Simulated scan of single mutants.
Amino acid sequence: MRWCPLGVHDLSYSFVIPTLNEETSVERLLPQLRARFPNAQLVVVDGGSRDHTRALARPLCDKLIESAPGRARQMNLGAQQAFGEYLLFLHADSVPGLDECQLQLYLASKPPWGFCRVSLEGNEMVFRIISYFINARSRATRVATGDQMLFIHRDVMQRAGGFDDIPLMEDVAFSKRLRKLAPPQWIKEPVATSSRRWREAGVLRTVVKMWALRFAYFIGVSPQHLWHYYYGDD
């Protein structure tokens, strides 16, 4: 790892990774995190996987926690058991584009919270366009989605009350509470996230579905109803 002028031990931080049937993703992600963030704590919180996720993750992480399913519930539990001053919430199919030294430089000013740009994997122009609009929207609204590596100072996490225990939109709801406390730190290095769902469901169909979900949530439709819409017709 390259030399960092601030020293890599200045701030402790923990990655909290919620999983559910992510055997392929954890086998790819965790070794990369270990190599690029050697001083980080890696916490995997599994929500009852029926594949080999837990068996594969156990030797590759520092702490494996078994939880009831539900991403918000899993992330809150992981935050409670992690030791880092900063908590970095990362999807199993997403890989951050910065290294430990760059992360320490961002955290040196002690930002209360923040998130990264996102980059959908794939060389197709459509994924670049989608990534551009996701980033433009999140920067303008100061609202992050879960695949943007939301990071939070532990004290701020406690003040904000953690993620709402809802089946969908927990990241959006939490971002809206956090932005009332302080503006987010914007990390320019993107998180590369899987475009699997876009390919499987169809790009246009997925775009329409995502915008419909966000609009419905904005006008007050409950996350429980949105969850049934999101998963019920796939």
Rank of each mutant, 00 (worst) to 15 (best):
R50Q: 14
R50N: 12
T53V: 10
R54V: 08
P59E: 07
C61A: 11
D62G: 06
L64W: 04
I65N: 10
I65L: 15
I65P: 13
R71I: 12
R73K: 12
R73W: 09
Q74F: 04
L77F: 02
Q81R: 14
F83R: 11
F83I: 08
G84E: 00
E85Y: 00
Y86Q: 01
L87S: 08
L87I: 03
L88Y: 02
H91C: 14
H91E: 13
V95E: 11
V95N: 09
L98V: 08
E100H: 09
C101D: 00
Q102S: 11
Q102C: 13
L103I: 05
Q104W: 06
L105Y: 08
Y106G: 02
S109Y: 04
S109V: 13
W113A: 12
G114T: 03
G114R: 04
F115Y: 15
V118A: 15
L120I: 03
E121N: 08
N123V: 07
E124Y: 07
E124M: 01
V126E: 11
S131R: 01
N135H: 05
S138Y: 06
S138I: 02
T145N: 14
F151H: 03
F151M: 03
F151W: 04
D155R: 14
M157L: 15
M157T: 07
M157P: 02
M157Y: 15
Q158T: 11
R159V: 10
G162R: 08
F163W: 11
F163I: 01
F163Y: 15
F163C: 11
D164N: 10
D164A: 14
P167G: 01
E170F: 07
E170T: 05
E170G: 13
D171F: 00
D171C: 04
F174G: 02
F174R: 00
S175H: 02
S175V: 00
K176V: 00
R177Q: 10
L178C: 04
L178G: 01
K180I: 07
A182L: 03
P184K: 07
P184L: 05
W186D: 08
W186K: 06
P190Q: 10
P190Y: 09
